[in-house]
Structures are given as C-alpha cells and as structure tokens.
Design a protein around this nucleic acid. Structure first.
Lengths: 85, 85
DNA sequence: TAAGATTTGTTCGTATGTATA
DNA sequence: ATATACATACGAACAAATCTT
C-alpha cells in the first residue's frame, strides 16, 4: 500500500505516480496500464480519485482509453509536453 | 454562463431556476433533468451547491433521483404545493 | 446465440476540510 | 458560531463496450 502526502491532493499524487511509471518505462509504450479496479486495490484510493488522475493523463496525451477494453500508453510522438503546471 | 444575484444565496437561485424550468415545461414530466456535473458546468457553481438545490426539489416532490442513473421530473400529481418558504 | 465477467464511463449519495461573510 | 460555497475524497449503482465461455 502506497502512502500519500497529507498536504497535497491524493489525485494529484496518483497522477504523478502513474506519469512517472509511464515516463520511466514501467508501463511500456503502446502497452496497457492496470485497470481502474486494480489501481484502486493497489493504491488504496477510490475509483473517482483514480479516474481524476487518469483523465488528466488522457488530457496530457500520455494514455488512451478504449471503452470496454482497457487503457494504453500512447506512442511518445503523441505526448504533449506540458511545461506549466 | 448564468449570473447570480449577489445578495441572495446561490443555491436558492439555482433552486428557483430549476423549479421554473420544471414548472415551465422545459424539463418535461417524467423526463430527465441534466446531471449534476452538467449543471455544474452550465451554471458554474460547485457540486454541493447544485445538490442543495436538488435536495430541496426532492423535498418538494418535484423530482426523483435514482442512484447511478439520473434524476427525473416527478408526475405532477406527486408535486407538493409548498406555500411557506 | 446467449450468458457472464471485465473494463471504461457516468451518475447519485455522503462526508470532510477550507475559506469567507 | 452559523451559513454559504468551493474542493476533495469516498462509496454505491447503473450503463455500454469488449471479450470469453
């Protein structure tokens, strides 16, 4: 179980964790990332919180979700480089 | 984006807006009203504020909410006629 | 064809914390 | 102190798409 900092929002820390796993290659290009229920189980946070992080990653172009199938790391060419946060 | 009067509570103005839309027939009998997230987007106020207005409409018998599905205008026979405010 | 499981997506419901007036 | 309003986080249920059996 992962521990989260209390003075920062959980969904943002989840976002950064997943982002680092993608950029670090733990989740491979064009490969799947764990399903929402799996992430709920692993990270110990609510579905909605996972989804908020996921939505941000989608907005970043880092992942692509296919309804009923799964969520996949986008090819690097598709990633946006967001500087300002 | 709708503008709200500053010297009256927002939730009450949201309540009156939705009530007028229901009574005016914009939201039809037994038909759905927009979801909470949609109303948040349209009216530019927080979820909790929308919910407070929604709860009042439920207490009035004007609408009925179904968890995970949506919120619907009740048949007119079910409406309460609240005189006192 | 049909039924079930999995996964994404959406919705309502509840609670807590913070800031403000 | 109380009420308002916003943001966050959790829980529960429903729906559609996909895949398997």
């Amino acid at each position: 179980m992962i521990e989260f900092d209390e003075d920062r929002t959980v969904w943002e820390q989840v976002y950064e964790l997943l982002r680092s796993r993608i950029e670090g290659g733990q989740y491979k290009e064009r490969g799947p990332i764990p399903s929402t229920p799996r992430l709920v189980q692993e990270l110990g946070v609510a579905q909605n919180t996972i989804r908020k992080a996921i939505n941000r990653l989608k907005a970043d172009g880092l992942i692509r979700a296919i309804n009923g199938k799964g969520t996949y790391v986008a090819p690097r060419e598709a990633w946006f480089r967001n500087k300002g946060e």
